[in-house]
Design a protein around this nucleic acid. Structure first.
Lengths: 340, 340
DNA sequence: CTGAAAGCGCTTACAG
DNA sequence: CTGAAAGCGCTTACAG
């Protein structure tokens, strides 16, 4: 279909200049005269010429590309990846594009599939790692890469010594807890765990506890079982509360997936939400909007999240380090907390 | 951090062979002797050597990369992209990876952002286009690229003259309709439109009509207003039915997003699902599982979808054409149709 | 089975 | 402001 490749030499011939001048004109070198540049651009247009990026990259050593790795739970089908990470992925690609970078995306789960030698193969200038904190071997692998010099930033790492970007979990938890208090709930539980590899859970628990004590209320932790699926974690937490004779009338769940499980169990137990029980989650999952009743949540600003991750990585690459960053969050008030 | 790049010449020196032999050994050329290969691999390992893909690609003209473009509705935030396309994206990346290809991902919406010269810049060997049928300028753009020789396959195109992969919409619609009939519903509407740019909607309407007539039932179209959001389309369709005094007791919605809007409206109108009204959608959106009641749906096999798209594109690239392909679908039976 | 050499298509000192 | 030339790091005919 396509013929012999058009090169900068062809453009040079048509424009009546040397090949080096074509290159200068096209890369935007200000040294070339306006007349020359115009002629070159016109010739390139006529020949439908486009720079072969492989040659350019080989020469410059820059790829103009960022690798994005989404860490999945082992064996998880790609359609079942937490939609939170898909939203984050979309925002990262958009932010990279806005900065003039391409994004090379891969999903990785099992140890055999772990691979991150993008810089070594000169496929990318740096890596953004996002995804399930639970896949420890994956995070260990990328930590070892980082230790051997990879330019790498992440979201969701269980490690603190990474270059990370995170939701403002503390503030989000305060907002969620404060919202339940405002709505008149007093006996408010936290569905989560104190000792989680998921740092964000710890931060949310702290924000919750702090806000409770400020209001003169007693924090109450309903410990989840991390070996269960998120959904089951939420269901079991609610069953535990029912078994204890409903010692609380509201809950802040560590994440939406736990909250959605909890909501389902509340419905099955006939506990009316929000009248008898208030519930709020964290993450702003789209599915929460379709739940019954629609689930209130704390949503991070995804657009900022993408931009922060990309800018942090570019800072690393350009040796111009950026502090760890917190993504602002906001209350998504829906029916599950809307008690009069 | 990282030192001077290690090249195949360094490996050659350490292994005591020529640089061309290193290249042969590493690309797997069977002509090199086992002993030599072993020495080369060992030297490469010792030096932590990795092929510079830009140089390799420049030389071979192959990129080992597929570009995946997700077409969004103009102005749509990346977090709001229909999760269906995210699931499909994930499956495509997985399938490409299984075939040894990298995936370069971008999200495009407005006309200024449309861009697909991946082959011209030698960034990819071909393109996979997925996303919202509604963004006509985007599809027009990629059609013009295809016409000028781009290797391109798609999912969701309004055009029939593309190389496409699609759900088996006809069969899926028959399954959905047959399922409602089995559950005892008789007056079953189709929420959608006959004249849609969305070819899949047409196919679903046909499968529905065919199955209804087979059962001696009369098809009934509740026309949606394509200018509204999907959610509103579903809500309005239900309001229309209520206004007409509930002439039907079940509906097959053209897609899950319409069905979820419909479900919400049914709830607000106090129409009990599935007892008074049965509802089933199409797409297998994750959100349906959390709806109230959970929404029955027709789910395409995402894994096959990704594999088919990739294999079809590779067929095009290798001049070994593959017929248009239909992705198998299955019934996802949930509570919204579970009437005794 | 291996080596010496050409060449993929650019960018960028170096000269003028 | 422009041109001639080197070189980025590979793969692959061509010889032997």
């Amino acid at each position: 279909m396509r013929q012999q490749r058009v090169t900068s030499f062809d453009v040079a011939a048509l424009a009546g200049v040397s090949q080096s001048t074509v290159s200068r004109a096209l890369t935007g070198d200000t040294v070339v005269s306006d007349g020359t540049r115009t002629r070159v651009l016109e010739a390139a247009r006529q020949l439908n010429y486009h720079v072969d990026e492989n040659a350019a990259r080989l020469r410059t050593g820059k790829t103009g590309t960022l690798a994005v790795v989404v860490i999945c739970r082992p064996g998880e089908q790609r359609k079942d990846v937490n939609p939170f990470y898909y939203s984050l992925l979309g925002s990262i690609c958009a932010a990279a594009s806005a900065r003039g970078f391409e994004t090379l995306v891969s999903f990785q789960d099992t140890e055999e599939s772990l691979w991150g030698l993008y810089e070594e193969q000169r496929k990318a200038d740096g890596l953004i790692i996002i995804g399930s904190t639970a896949n420890r071997p994956a995070w260990d692998y990328f930590r070892s890469l980082r230790d051997s010099g990879a330019q790498l930033v992440c979201w969701g790492s269980p490690f603190d010594d990474f270059d990370w970007v995170r939701s403002d979990n503390h503030e989000g938890a305060r907002i969620a807890t404060g919202h339940l208090i405002e709505r008149g709930y007093r006996r408010i539980a936290y569905l989560g765990t104190e000792q989680s590899p998921q740092r964000q859970f710890k931060e949310r628990y702290q924000g919750y506890g702090e806000r409770m004590r400020e209001a003169g209320l007693e924090p109450r932790l309903v410990e989840i079982d991390e070996r269960l699926s998120r959904d089951e974690q939420g269901r079991k937490a609610i069953r535990d509360l029912a078994g204890a004779g409903w010692p609380v009338d509201a809950a802040f769940a560590a994440c939406d997936e736990i909250a959605l499980g909890a909501l389902e169990e509340l419905r099955q137990l006939g506990r009316s939400v929000p009248d008898e029980f208030g519930l709020i989650g964290f993450d702003g999952n789209r599915a929460g909007a379709y739940a019954s009743p629609p689930l209130s949540s704390i949503e991070p600003d995804f657009q900022s999240a993408g931009t922060m991750l990309v800018d942090k990585l570019l800072g690393l690459i350009n040796d111009d380090p950026v502090e760890p960053l917190r993504v602002p969050v906001r209350l998504l008030e829906r029916e599950s907390t809307r008690r009069n």
